[in-house]
Design a protein around this nucleic acid. Structure first.
Lengths: 283, 283
DNA sequence: ATGTCACAGTACGCTAACGTACTGTACTCC
DNA sequence: GGAGTACAGTACGTTAGCGTACTGTGACAT
């Protein structure tokens, strides 16, 4: 059952996971579906083996991963949990592996809108990594799930020593910047329905596994920076078209190609950028 | 006439400027106004002395600046000049000192909107610095003027060797990310008039010196992602209020506090972030 | 089994901004 | 000095999305 379909760099098996454990064994490369199928039976953290579901961690060189592993701990993040607000600096950076984290901008008049999304493709805590308190938004958990986290000080210590680790994180930061930029342009130029479809696709991607998304219209409206009634109409149209199934607080994605057609080109631009920036570099 | 008002870190005098010249002499710290007053009389690049008008360069440690100086060359950028497009990588990074550079997103339907602005506070070419081809937008010269530039390969060589230089550029990148994020939120939540006022303030800041801005309404509409007629109304209101003076292709800012009142809080958030991120760190 | 309530659907008048197009006028170039 | 043109102002019907509010209903608790 192991190691049949290889999706290079997405996930990997590690050897024993314990504080300060530095040896590393890459046992299997397998598809994300297989990993989740297995991890449903056996807990990911058995004390003997840990499965990493985060692409940044999965794409690291063995040496870089070995350096970080001792500092990583798995945490469960609850929906709505606020990791940072205003100019707070995170004490930890988070590598989501199932949860999805949003960066939301709040305005003086009480309105708000999501400016960025981080899931299993990345890391939350870029401001801390870049040594500044520049994050003006709120960092909150949009979809609950687990994440690996480590202290910022440990990350900085390791990135200071490893150019390849810096390169990986810089390339992620660059992809994230493209997301911020394209998202901003999209906010200006595209309709609610297009943006709604894009948002669902992007969040679905970042959850890393096919599952129902626990989402109320009110929350979606908050993320898109529109009225709930606007979401009702837009999501209703997507449902009528058969792309999603909406049921009181949960959305199931039924037809991704359909959603892509309903969304604007921004989805493909952002998606493509992450693919290029995070592709595993040969060691 | 020299060295009376000190605005730490904004600009500085350097010793002799020539390729491969490594010695460095910081002679004067002076206000931006004094610098410009002087440089109007004597050309900035006399062969003996060069005045740096860029804040990133101005805020560098002596050692970092000394390392970069040999590679810097001054260029004049013309309005509309396109430095990069799509996934082109810049061969050089640019440190504007009077010109203002815009990053513009273009959509399939022909619409477009500015996502970021870079002037004398920063550097154009972050994608190259971060080792990726993720810039999907167009990098173009919005306000003509001069810039210092250097080859990306030389920059990477020096940043690889200097943690303090990396820190400076990372903090700038972070401030720029905040700009992208806030800009995106602003695009969703604020009116044309507010965004127009903010755009004028931000561009005015980044020109580094008080001068008339060569801007047609058509161009401003292009930047804001709105119709020209919309700009006509919004800018007309700002002119009626006495904040700006508009004259066929040029805008003069008359009342910055007034413009700030007409703009949204986004201006202050972005401005404050840059101030904090780019403040000169004690050596 | 029933009641409650949270969530989704819908309606309606309003406004900002759009697309388009025409007009007026200040420069520029003969 | 006059013609031509590029730029700004204005108008008008259209539309997307807003604010608000009421209705319907599925899920859950008592």
């Amino acid at each position: 059952m192991f190691a049949r379909a290889v999706r290079a760099g997405h996930c990997r098996y590690l050897g024993e996971f314990a504080p300060r454990y530095h040896a590393l064994e890459a046992r299997y490369a397998m598809s994300r579906e297989e990993l989740f199928a297995e991890s449903a039976d056996t807990p990911a953290y058995t004390g003997a083996t840990v499965v990493l579901h985060n692409r940044l961690l999965g794409n690291m060189s063995d040496a870089d991963l070995a350096a970080l592993v001792p500092y990583l701990e798995r945490v469960e993040l609850k929906v709505g949990e606020v990791l940072a607000k205003g100019r707070d600096l995170l004490t930890h950076v988070y590598f989501p592996e199932g949860c999805v984290i949003s960066i939301v901008a709040h305005m003086a008049d009480g309105t708000s809108v999501e400016v960025g999304t981080i899931g299993d493709e990345g890391m939350a805590g870029l401001p801390a990594y870049f040594d500044g308190d520049a994050s003006e938004g709120e960092t909150l958990v949009q979809i609950p799930g687990s994440a690996m986290r480590m202290r910022v000080s440990h990350l900085l210590q390791e990135t200071g020593a490893s150019p390849s680790l810096r390169r990986l994180l810089n390339r992620f930061a660059l992809a994230y910047m493209t997301q911020l930029a394209q998202n901003g342009a999209c906010n200006r130029l595209h309709s609610i329905e297009q943006r709604c479809a894009r948002w669902l696709l992007m969040t679905h991607d970042r959850m890393g596994q096919p599952k129902v998304m626990p989402l109320k219209q009110q929350f979606l409206a908050f993320m898109l920076g529109v009225r709930r009634a606007g979401v009702s109409v837009a999501a209703g149209a997507l449902q009528d078209a058969g792309f999603i199934r909406y049921r009181r607080g949960s959305i199931r994605v039924l037809d991704r190609p359909g959603l892509q057609r309903a969304s604007c080109e921004c989805y493909e631009i952002i998606h493509g950028t992450f693919e290029r920036m995070l592709a595993r570099v040969p060691e």
